[in-house]
Computed example of a mutant assay.
Amino acid sequence: MEARGLAGGVVFGLLLFFTSFFGSIFLLAPLLPITFIHPKWCRRLMDTMIFLWKLYAVALYENLYHVKVVITGHPIPSHQDGSALIVMNHRTRMDWMFLFSYQVRYGSLSRYIISLKEILKQVPGGGWAMQCSSFIFLNRRWEKDRAAIDRGLDYFSRLNFRPQILLFPEGTDLTPDTCARSKIFAEKNQLPVYQYVLHPRTTGFVHFVQRMKEAKMLDSVLDITIAYPKSCAQNEGDILIGKFPEEIHFDVKQYMPSELPCESQDLRDWCCARWSDKDKWLQDYYQKQHFYDADQGNNNDNVNENITQILFYFAMIFWTLFEVFVVYILVLSPVVRWYCVTCSILFVVLGKKWGIECLLAESVKISSDIFK
Rank of each mutant, 00 (worst) to 15 (best):
G23F: 06
L191G: 11
T308N: 13
P77M: 12
F318A: 00
R274D: 04
C271A: 12
F26R: 06
G5Q: 09
I113K: 05
Y285W: 08
F51K: 14
K253Q: 11
N139C: 05
I241V: 10
V70I: 04
V335F: 01
Y328I: 08
A227C: 06
V87T: 14
S108D: 00
A129H: 06
R93S: 03
L120K: 10
A84R: 01
F244D: 05
A233V: 07
M256S: 15
F22D: 05
D154R: 14
C340D: 03
N235M: 09
E263V: 00
Q296V: 10
L28M: 05
I184S: 11
I114V: 07
E323V: 10
K280L: 12
R43I: 00
K54L: 09
I241M: 03
Q195P: 11
Q283D: 14
T19F: 04
V335Y: 04
K216I: 08
K117H: 09
I86T: 02
P169T: 06
L15A: 05
K278M: 03
Q234I: 03
R151I: 06
K230W: 07
W338L: 13
K352W: 15
R162Y: 07
T92Y: 10
I241A: 05
S264W: 04
L85R: 00
G171M: 02
N299M: 07
F322E: 00
S83P: 04
K121N: 04
Q309P: 13
S78Q: 12
I356L: 13
D269W: 06
L260W: 03
P163F: 04
I356G: 04
H249C: 13
N235Q: 09
P169Y: 06
F161D: 15
Q190I: 05
L166Y: 00
A57H: 13
K40R: 14
N235R: 12
P192L: 00
H66G: 15
P176A: 12
L27M: 03
D150A: 14
D269L: 04
W270A: 00
V123C: 06
D154V: 14
G237R: 06
Q265C: 11
L240R: 12
V209H: 01
R162G: 14
N89E: 04
M130F: 10
F18T: 10
G355V: 08
P33R: 02
A7P: 11
G171P: 03
L359F: 01
L350W: 08
R274V: 00
Y56P: 05
A129R: 09
E214V: 01
S83A: 11
I356T: 01
K40D: 00
